[in-house]
């Protein structure tokens, strides 16, 4: 078995890299794939929180690198899905504790036992980014329809294109707000795709459920009713090669629809 190593990156912080990682990982595992997630954000680890695994971490990636434990010992199994594992980042060390070579080696070892290795990349374009990318051959660039996030994504795409090991990269548009797009107050999917001229792998709508699911330590893909959860599930299906149409996120258009929405919102508020 030779698993696919996918790095999830963005340049800008706070656009949803870690959330994306947790959800895609969980979705792939639910489909029966063997998945391991590597948190490379040394000193600022969060992937454990999103998965609700923060109390189960004994060893971290730094312990593996410094040979205080074996690689297998450091893999934390998910609570619900035995197909899903986490290799946590060290919280007390900085980005220099692991080198590009060491990360590459870890990825190569994990490729033998897992279908997917998802690498959670830290924000920025410094060594942390270089490390995270080192072992990967595919990338998902997360961005939001905001200027700063798109600009940083463009920079990241430039850096990824310069890397020979990265064979393909895809764009994931996060925190999309269809009502703002309809009011022409937010860049649309087409705008972002055209500006970055990159292939799209998913559109995730802004969803308050992301916050509540993080509160619980449970990825939103487990909630099948949530739109963001469905969107993440679709991303996972596209990753394994299924041809899944993009969710219809557009809100009703036209005067009548606007009135309807307007009144239904009003009624909703008064309850």
């Amino acid at each position: 078995m030779s698993g696919r190593v996918i790095v999830i990156t963005s340049g800008k912080g706070g656009v949803g890299k870690t959330t994306t990682n947790a959800n895609i990982g969980t979705a792939l595992a639910k489909m029966g794939k063997k998945v391991v997630m590597i948190d490379t954000d040394l000193g600022l680890r969060n992937l454990d929180l999103l998965l609700g695994l923060e109390n189960r971490i004994v060893y971290t990636i730094v312990d593996v690198v410094e040979e205080r434990c074996k690689l297998k010992q450091a893999l934390v199994k998910d609570k619900k899905n035995p197909n899903l594992c986490l290799l946590a980042a060290a919280q007390t060390r900085d980005k220099t504790a692991v080198t590009e070579e060491q990360l590459k080696e870890i990825c190569e070892k994990l490729q033998k036992d897992f279908d997917f290795i998802l690498v959670d990349c830290p924000a920025g374009i410094e060594q942390g980014f270089q490390n995270a990318v080192a072992g990967a051959s595919e990338a998902i660039v997360v961005t939001t329809p905001e200027m700063s996030a798109v600009r940083d994504a463009d920079r990241i795409i430039g850096l990824l294109e310069a890397k020979e090991e990265i064979k393909s990269y895809k764009l994931l548009l996060n925190r999309y707000r269809p009502n703002m797009v309809n009011a022409n107050d937010m860049m649309s999917v087409d705008d972002v795709v055209e500006i970055l001229s990159a292939e799209l792998i998913g559109i995730i709508p802004e969803d308050t459920g992301i916050i509540t699911s993080t509160n619980k330590g449970e990825p939103i893909v487990n909630d099948e009713k949530s739109l963001a959860g469905q969107a993440y599930n679709n991303v996972a299906r596209r990753i394994i090669g299924e041809d899944v149409p993009f969710l219809n996120l557009e809100e009703p258009k036209g005067m009548v629809a606007k009135m309807k929405k307007f009144f239904s919102n009003l009624i909703g508020k008064e309850k």
Partner: peptide, 16 residues
């Protein structure tokens, strides 16, 4: 707002 230049267009142009 639909009659004026939208903030979305401003964003796209500045970004380009």
């Amino acid at each position: 707002a639909e009659q004026q230049e939208s903030t979305k267009d401003t964003a796209c142009n500045r970004l380009r």
